[in-house]
Amino acid sequence: MATSIDETILLTGFMGSGKTMIGEALAKKLNKPFADIDKIIEEKEGMPIKDIFKKEGEAAFRAKEKAEITNYLTEASAGNAVVSVGGGSFLQKEIRNICMKNATVVFLHISWSAWLERLDMLVETRPVLHGRTISEIRTLYDDRQAIYDQHHYRVTVDGLDPEEASDKIISAFQDKSI
């Protein structure tokens, strides 16, 4: 599917919704650079996100996340890229506002039941899941849905592979229907 979308597209959504994989597929289809803010932070810090959480705490990570998103979207002139941000980044209102102003935000919605199918592969790499019960994780999921309400497009990704999800995003831009 060849198309031209001349704006920065920012993908947000709950952890494990596929932001990185879908972002990579979308960037390839649109011939745009792809930036994963979590990976940028890991490269700069020389350690995985889970280790940053362990060594420095969530507040320190969130500060790094805010700085990188702000830099990428405003100072680095992302201009015409596909960007994915961590599932918790939108907890900060200032980040949501920066993203909404400097990019077209696409919320990748995944239902609770579809997300649960991915839980086993997510727990190890997602520090906010460590030590939580299913009930606590469900509360986290439900609470975070409200923070994703600020977006330009909402795309449900249940049952879609990254190629199908990226096609759905492109279609949304072409017909402005989502």
Rank of each mutant, 00 (worst) to 15 (best):
M1N: 03
A2Y: 14
A2H: 12
D6Y: 07
L11Q: 03
G13V: 05
G13K: 01
M15H: 01
M15S: 08
G18I: 00
T20L: 00
M21L: 14
I22T: 11
A25K: 13
L30I: 08
N31M: 12
F34M: 01
K39S: 15
I41T: 05
E45P: 03
I49W: 02
K50V: 02
D51W: 11
D51V: 02
I52Q: 01
I52W: 01
E58G: 06
A59Q: 14
F61I: 04
A67N: 13
A67V: 13
T70Q: 06
G79D: 09
G79E: 09
V82L: 02
V82F: 07
V85L: 12
G86V: 12
G87C: 05
G88H: 11
G88C: 09
F90W: 11
F90L: 14
F90G: 00
I95E: 03
I98P: 01
I98E: 01
K101E: 15
K101Q: 13
N102G: 05
T104V: 14
F107I: 02
F107Q: 01
S113P: 04
L116C: 15
M121S: 15
R126W: 06
P127E: 11
L129G: 04
G131Y: 05
R132N: 09
R132S: 00
I134N: 04
T139N: 14
L140R: 02
Y141S: 10
Y141T: 06
Y141W: 10
D143N: 15
R144C: 07
A146W: 12
I147M: 13
V155Q: 03
L160N: 04
D161S: 12
D167E: 14
K168E: 15
I170Y: 08
F173Q: 01
F173G: 05
Q174W: 06
I178S: 13
